[in-house]
């Protein structure tokens, strides 16, 4: 993926992080990981995971942490959500 696109993903991830860092309940990082899982296409998720693997330049701490967890879960199961969770996604 080009620098341009990664920059865009970094910006988007930081935007998401700024929302979830303010949430105390439930835990912000987990919610952010979930958000990326639910709304980001695998292509975008792979690109941001690769970026974090290379140091994650420009990403805020919550975003780095959330993407790391995303990387761990991506290996475990292709569809990581619990059944029946879809109703409240919007």
């Amino acid at each position: 993926m080009s620098h341009d696109s990664v920059d865009k993903l970094v910006k988007m991830a930081n935007q998401i992080g700024k929302f979830f860092v303010a949430q105390k309940h439930p835990e912000g990082v987990a919610s952010m990981t979930d958000h990326l899982k639910k709304f980001w296409n695998p292509r975008m998720r792979e690109a941001i995971i690769a970026h974090v693997d290379h140091g994650g330049a420009g990403l805020d701490p919550i975003a780095i942490e959330a993407v790391k967890r995303l990387g761990q879960r991506a290996g475990a199961a292709a569809s990581g959500l619990r059944p029946g969770e879809g109703g409240a996604d919007g």
């Binding site: 639910k38 059944p83 029946g84 969770e85 109703g87 996604d89």
Partner: peptide
């Protein structure tokens, strides 16, 4: 990211209903 009626594409039960009706396996990723 979601099937008709706002059900997330990763929701197995919802996806399976469509798979059964449409006769194909659906991609569970957004």
């Amino acid at each position: 990211h979601e099937l008709p009626g706002y059900r997330h594409i990763s929701n197995d039960a919802a996806r399976q209903a469509f798979e059964k009706d449409w006769g194909v396996a659906l991609d569970p990723e957004p």
